[in-house]
Nucleic acid binder design. Sequence first.
DNA 1: TATGAATGAGGTTTCATTCAT
DNA 2: AATGAATGAAACCTCATTCAT
Lengths: 197, 197, 197, 197
Amino acid sequence: MDGKEKILAAARKVISKHGSNRATVRAIAEEAGLSTGAIYHYYKNKDDILYDLLDDSLSDSTRIAKGIHQQEGTKTKIKLDVLQKTEERFYKEAENRLQYHFAHEILLGNKDLQGKFQEKYKEWNLRIEEILVNLYGLEDTRLNKALTSWLLGAVDGVILQHLLEVNETSVDDMMEVFQLLLDKGLPQFVAVLNEEE
Amino acid sequence: MDGKEKILAAARKVISKHGSNRATVRAIAEEAGLSTGAIYHYYKNKDDILYDLLDDSLSDSTRIAKGIHQQEGTKTKIKLDVLQKTEERFYKEAENRLQYHFAHEILLGNKDLQGKFQEKYKEWNLRIEEILVNLYGLEDTRLNKALTSWLLGAVDGVILQHLLEVNETSVDDMMEVFQLLLDKGLPQFVAVLNEEE
Amino acid sequence: MDGKEKILAAARKVISKHGSNRATVRAIAEEAGLSTGAIYHYYKNKDDILYDLLDDSLSDSTRIAKGIHQQEGTKTKIKLDVLQKTEERFYKEAENRLQYHFAHEILLGNKDLQGKFQEKYKEWNLRIEEILVNLYGLEDTRLNKALTSWLLGAVDGVILQHLLEVNETSVDDMMEVFQLLLDKGLPQFVAVLNEEE
Amino acid sequence: MDGKEKILAAARKVISKHGSNRATVRAIAEEAGLSTGAIYHYYKNKDDILYDLLDDSLSDSTRIAKGIHQQEGTKTKIKLDVLQKTEERFYKEAENRLQYHFAHEILLGNKDLQGKFQEKYKEWNLRIEEILVNLYGLEDTRLNKALTSWLLGAVDGVILQHLLEVNETSVDDMMEVFQLLLDKGLPQFVAVLNEEE
DNA sequence: TATGAATGAGGTTTCATTCAT
DNA sequence: AATGAATGAAACCTCATTCAT
């Protein structure tokens, strides 16, 4: 593991352990077994570390999204895959924390990050749309993007509830409703949308 | 406008303009036309200002939630009300930013705040459940709380997308899908849930 | 009780309760049931309050010292009186704290206070000398002032030990040794001093 | 001289020049030729600097106390040693100021410091007792600790008088009386105590 | 007399970043 | 490559004092 990787791993660990506010350069350096000065041999500044971290995290998500699509299976298999990947997200605390750390950064005015997020959201929406087309025959309606945004938002919102520990419902119950949505809710709702046009 | 109100207004303004990290005591004081010392005449410390802000914001939300329920109208009227309140949330930037600021604080380990959020989420879930019962005849199923959590999460997640400016879909389109959900999606999905038991 | 008295009483209470560091003008004002502004009608500044307080405290001590001397009694009676007044000092926590508060102020460079303390120490040394003359026939030796300073210092030092709670010995034991000093130690030691000349 | 030592030396200097209240981090940093931030490279916070200073000062005192005892000399030599160390204490202004600074801190409620002082006082009392046993044949009486506390208190009290500059008597005169006490006062007074039992 | 809002200097602390070694 | 001492700006907070009312 070379310098940059070591630093990224350390940053990930520090953020998921102590939150992004405690992710000082010094803390990252210590976790990486380096001096603070050494950090600056690999990265121009702290933000660059976080950018790299985000890139990793985002390309991870994209890989998953792509993974779902590339599965050439029956509809049942795809649905199972979606279910599984979604459930896994509940348990990826480090990644989730990281994601919300970056969201926070954007809220503070970081335009670079915002650009990256915009791209990624566009891509995720696209993936979800493809899945909806494959699974439920969603047509090319005016409201496609709104639907995928709601679905994406729902997962994000619910993940946040779990991170914050403000949702008393078990992950199992949450997933059961999600499965019902995939099995019985969405087929009908996609039909509604298709008719609208 | 007395001291505390002036400070709260200034804090709200600073947060919605520059984000919560730039909401320093100095910045708030300047915005309020006060010296930093004067702030401490009214508030013991910075956190107390933000807590007050949160309380305002949360009790606002609760007031809205209660407002919807207490409307003794036809189902159509209740639905209209829900739609309107939801749409309004998209435009309350200061409040929304504040909410995510506090979410961030909780992720950093603030247990007090977590307690407040837990309470509020419980209450909101209850309100949503009541509405679902009234509008769609939702019965007392095992998965009620999971459903309301998903709905609450969806709105939160979508609001975050708009704050982050990562959602290219217009608020109008988002609301149109939401209306379809209320009109045609939820009636059917609630029926699915009722049958499950 | 007029303004100044009320303020002095409040200051005394605050200092003995929370120590001199917490004796802020605001705290004193609150304890006195006044606003901070009102304090400045009675006193030019905070130091003046403390000066007055010191004057009170010092004249108290002096009154005691004088009281001992003015007692026209047998030597036994005077000794009993000295013993009693000394023992009482152990229990006057507020006054003792106050005294050490002012000592601290002097160490910080307050020259006015120093002048007052110098005067008082001179006076106390004089009183002690008178008592030694009366009780033990101390003559006018070159070392009289050194002896009285040691005696005065011993009491001050031991009082401080008790304030700090670093002296495990009971007040009773301390007083028993003090009594032995008065009864058997000093008569002989004064004789030693008288012979030295 | 490394960082910590430089800082401790600076702190000692600032305290003896301007008193403990003016011993701000800024002042210490300036005296040490450092920026304020640099201080925190070596010490977690200001208190830790002062604790280190106290430890130094206390272990110094203890070393002296032990030094006296370990001298295997004639009684005359031990007495000379005690006299010399005591006289030296009069001139260690920085250490003395420091001691009273910490006493003040204890009066403000610092329990940690109190614990350290309690330990040290216990130890010093023990040393003094040993010396009294060696020099004057003090037996194991009930009042031993009271006697040592008085002696310790006397020195502390007299040192304070000199710090406060309220004692007009010269150090020479004070020491002369102290010598008489060691030579003629204590032998007789210890005999009194031994008989008491 | 009395209030209490307001000031402003100065306190401790944090931390990204630089730089001599 | 690497160290870690050092910087300096900026954060929160305290408090004696002033002043319009």
